[in-house]
């Protein structure tokens, strides 16, 4: 894939290997979110550094998905502050988060079911395509050139994710594991600075999990993309992530390297003890 050739990706890659690795891309400060009386997230703070894979773990209902929804502007926390690329903000709309470089996948696949794999991934390029209405009417000259240029980019993603054979298949007809892969492709097509993955391996068999882990690692290592990953499989989390934050009942109970978290007594009690 040629994502590395694009200017920001090389920049991020440089950062991953070089100096400002400690620079937080995203900082979440005492975020609280409640639905009516229910506190989904209570005063959670953590940060995500450029170039890292940051895992968010916790039992079901701990508030992990809600946290991601706050980060990309889908939910608006009642309290707290989110700083992305050095800019703090209270409220923002999902499409604004997208234009600032945040992409995500969903716990329950949220693909465009009536469209083909290719069209789904091409839709991920929506923000990069600039030709206006009149050019679109003609679909010639610059509009067609733009369409082809982005098609090339999407084909690189399709190659990378090894989904060439289902390029023209309506995604509604694909098995679940492949749908998850297409959804990752659509997020990658946005060339985001921060990629939020909500349980990308839920419901997959061992082989599919291995493939998906490989893709996630490649996206991070080769293209320098910063990733926040929600995952239940502790083996995967330990293998992939640089740092882990643990939530329980909407509160943060631990934060640190996989080894630190693994040996934290509260985590063992609250999560590992229950899960295993």
């Amino acid at each position: 894939m040629n994502i590395a050739a694009s200017p920001h990706a090389t920049g991020a890659q440089g950062a991953a290997h070089g100096g400002p690795l400690r620079d937080p891309l995203l900082a979440v400060e005492s975020i609280s979110l409640s639905f009516g009386g229910l506190k989904a997230v209570s005063e959670v703070s953590f940060d995500i550094r450029r170039g890292e894979i940051r895992a968010i773990i916790g039992p079901n209902g701990a508030g992990k998905t809600s946290m991601l929804n706050c980060i990309n502007g889908f939910y608006h926390p009642q309290e707290g502050r989110i700083t992305f690329k050095g800019v703090a903000r209270r409220r923002m709309k999902p499409h604004e988060a997208a234009s600032q470089g945040i992409a995500r996948t969903f716990q329950n696949v949220a693909l465009f079911k009536g469209m083909s794999t290719l069209d789904n991934i091409m839709t991920g390029r929506a923000l990069k395509m600039r030709r206006g209405f009149l050019w679109q009417l003609l679909r010639h000259g610059p509009a067609l050139a733009e369409e082809i240029e982005h098609r090339k980019f999407c084909e690189e993603i399709i190659d990378f994710l090894e989904i060439e054979h289902i390029r023209k298949t309506p995604v509604g007809k694909l098995p679940y594991g492949l749908q998850k892969r297409v959804e990752l492709g659509r997020a990658l097509a946005m060339e985001p600075d921060l990629l939020l993955l909500d349980e990308p391996m839920a419901g997959m068999n061992v082989e599919e999990k291995r493939d998906m882990s490989r893709f996630i690692l490649d996206v991070n290592r080769h293209f320098g993309m910063t990733i926040a990953l929600i995952e239940h499989d502790m083996g995967v989390v330990m293998d992939l992530s640089d740092r882990v934050v643990v939530l329980e009942y909407g509160r943060k109970i631990a934060d640190g390297s996989p080894d630190e978290v693994k040996s934290n007594q509260r985590v063992i009690d609250a999560y590992l003890g229950v899960a295993r």
């Binding site: 709309k93 499409h95 988060a97 997208a98 693909l111 991920g124 929506a126 679909r139």
Partner: peptide, 28 residues
């Protein structure tokens, strides 16, 4: 021409899953 290009894709995206369309940067 319209429905086979960017605009048609954004319409279909909204039709199929408007939340995901927004998170991709499409303004509803």
């Amino acid at each position: 021409n319209l429905v086979h290009g960017r605009i048609g894709r954004s319409w279909m995206a909204i039709r199929d899953m408007d939340i995901a369309a927004q998170l991709i940067g499409i303004r509803l």
